[in-house]
Write a protein that binds this DNA or RNA. Sequence first.
RNA 1: CGGGGCGUGGCGCAGCCCGGUAGCGCGCACGGUUUGGGUCCGUGAGGCCCCCGGUUCAAAUCCGGGCGCCCCGACCA
Length: 533
Amino acid sequence: MARKLESHSLGLPVFHSALKALQYPAFATRRVGAGAADSNQRAAARCRRGKEAMSEQSVTAQSEDFSRWYNEIVYRADLAAPSPVRGCVIIKPYGYEIWEGIKAGLDRRFKATGHQNAYFPLFIPESYIRREAQHVEGFSPELAVVTHAGGKELEEPLVVRPTSETVIGEAFSDWIQSYRDLPLLINQWANVVRWELRTRPFLRTAEFLWQEGHTAHATHDEAERETLQMLDIYADFAVNDAAIPVIKGEKSKMERFAGALRTYTIEAMMRDRRALQSGTSHNLGQNFAKAFDIRYLAESNNQEYCWTTSWGLSTRMVGAVVMTHGDDKGLRLPPKLAPYQVVIVPIFKDDTQRGAVMDAVERLRGQLDDAGVRVHIDNRDGQSPGFKFNDWEMRGVPLRMEIGPRDVEKNNAVLARRDIPGRKGKQFVSQDGIVAVTRSLLADIQCSLLEDARAFRDAHIADAASYDELRMVIAEGDWARVFWDGDDEDELAVKDETGATIRCFPFDQPGEPGQCVFSGRNTERVALFAKAY
RNA sequence: CGGGGCGUGGCGCAGCCCGGUAGCGCGCACGGUUUGGGUCCGUGAGGCCCCCGGUUCAAAUCCGGGCGCCCCGACCA
């Protein structure tokens, strides 16, 4: 386990301090009309028709049908399996290991900023949920409720948690007496249930795994700092570990968490250019403190309500990794999250060769293993090397190592990078110093995935100066950045007409005033509109 | 909840119109052959044809009823 954690860093840029501002520039945009959408994608779509009946070994092209591509890849790469229950999935070991990587990366950051893990019950008395008015309203349509247990009807139905603000709020009100008990910084890793209508593996399932942090503070400002700090941690994780460039921002009133003062988000652009909210952080103000009587005795000897926050990131992140980096051949996993960073495919004809090849393979494996690289030997008997190459490419392994008789003879190995297709991604290297080469290639792949994703995203965000332009940009499938000073109805109108919603008001603002594309009012704020998952 | 579609070996499907032996591809098992980009051949295992009822000598197929699932329109990490 120690090794596993450690190998997540690989000598790559590691997480430094959650409080430190992130290094990457927020994001770039293009002008409307300039260099429109990917002509590549369309050409590919045209090309592909007619080859319909390609063998079952190949995956539907992204350009042809993105969601079909997604579903196929999720199942074929062995991330998940269908479940007997409605909107649920079985997360298979390969998918779960990605989640474990996500957990490890986040948990480390949470601990580094003083949070502790705890666990609260799955069942929540129905009356708790009702205590915070907006909260009930927000969640009641999607609650699963247990009415019977132990063979009889329960006196009070139990809600299967959709999130835990209420139980935790109740607990906090007991735990917190004095300002000396603050801040209280708690996180829990748990499953939650939301009875969603339309579900997709990882992106939206009836049950999902996540982490929910809950904190209580003495002042509004402190709570606000915590809320923003955790958003920074999410962004830092997304960028540096998952290689997903994200845009930090604030949610509009409509998209705000039920019961929150303010909701912040990191938004990522998937390969089909739809937005995916990949993590959120809420300043809950005193709403829950008042509903659950979370009070502390201040130094002044006065009873004060606490200021609370909550923040969560879920298995949806696995879907984000798939949809951000994946290509027509399948997954492309960032080395820091890849269950296997290197897969070794041994090649031999007969038993003599086998012996020599396997000796070399085992030796190299040992070296990589000792260096903390997650390495796997594919010694399946029935499959040809070619089959294995394709198989591991589909499963997104960053680096493939081929060792055959010729390599053994020359003390070589072949390394093939997943992020560079075909011959160009292949190189012969000496077996001596394999650790250093592997490490540097993995670091390189980690960066190149991030850069790819960033370039793609920036090419598909456009500044729109009018509502017409906004409509155009959205119709193209891109994201539109616009000056916005509309109200809820305006936002709804845009959604009805274009299908796009405000993903966020980015923290990165132009700093100069402009005219709201909808109301015409002057405003300082720009919003990002996009179609979202 | 409104509109469209589908339930047949593990997965993807054909068969249904015109009732009569349940079939194909993939996968799986075994043997051989191959192995540096998805080898090939042979043998084999595996199916209350969603459920209940009806028609008939005979139902996967026709009729009636149920159930389940998927896709498209209102919510969400």
